[in-house]
């Protein structure tokens, strides 16, 4: 049997952390892109479009992320679409992230007084101009802090990819546990690494919140 020193455990965990980071970034980017489209759909004020977004949000916020991952991984391949664990993880995390981001951004846009839309209309701005010059510059400032705050949830969400067999930090932890039989140490390390990834994001979100709250 191979002996694992503390450094061996930590080193292997750090290698796996790269995948956690990569998965987080990919999911956050994907989620942002989809959420932008959904937000645009909502802003059109078209009843059918708004209803689609509402159902989408309800569906992905109301079901466990783990279930979404199982559906993407086992479910899709059962109905004929072969998908890797990596692909399934990105797909499900994108859906999950976008459903939450679109709700967060909705709140940010809705905090702006309705009079701003009306005033822009009176000034002769069309829909896109209003959005670009009036609504978005204000809404993005408000949205910054909660969006960064939500990125913590995305990083933590990637831990579930371990269940479908994608080797990221948590999966590496369970594998190292099986090799070393030192669950206390291994999972404490794993938790600390997640903390090191997430805590700066939390602090950053808090800082942004203070900064823009004062500015308003």
């Amino acid at each position: 049997m191979i002996e694992f020193s503390n450094w061996d455990i930590l080193r292997n965990l750090l290698i796996a952390t790269q995948w956690t980071v990569l998965l987080s970034i990919a999911a956050f980017a994907g989620g942002t892109a989809v959420a932008l489209v959904l937000t645009a759909m909502r802003l059109t004020r078209n009843v059918a479009m708004m209803r689609i977004v509402k159902v989408y949000v309800e569906l992905f916020q109301g079901t466990p992320l783990l279930m979404q991952m199982f559906l993407c991984f086992f479910g899709l391949s059962m109905v004929g679409y072969e998908i890797s664990a990596w692909g399934a993880a990105i797909l499900s995390l994108t859906l999950f992230t976008s459903a939450f981001l679109v709700e967060i951004w909705r709140g940010c846009i809705d905090t702006l007084p309705k009079g701003q839309w009306e005033a822009s209309r009176v000034l002769g701005l069309n829909f896109l101009q209003t959005l670009r010059h009036v609504i978005l510059p204000q809404a993005t400032k408000v949205a910054f802090a909660p969006t960064v705050g939500f990125s913590v949830q995305v990083v933590k969400g990637t831990a579930l990819a371990s269940v479908i067999g994608f080797v990221e930090l948590t999966k590496a932890g369970t594998m190292l546990n099986n090799a070393t039989f030192e669950p206390f140490k291994v999972f404490a390390f794993v938790a600390l690494i997640y903390f090191a990834l997430c805590y700066p994001l939390s602090l950053c979100s808090k800082y942004l919140e203070k900064k823009y709250h004062v500015a308003r």
């Binding site: 933590k156 969400g157 990637t158 579930l160 932890g173 369970t174 546990n177 669950p183 938790a191 903390f195």
Partner: peptide, 9 residues
Amino acid sequence: NTPFIVQLF
């Protein structure tokens, strides 16, 4: 700032 699954494990 840590995932639930890690807390559980």
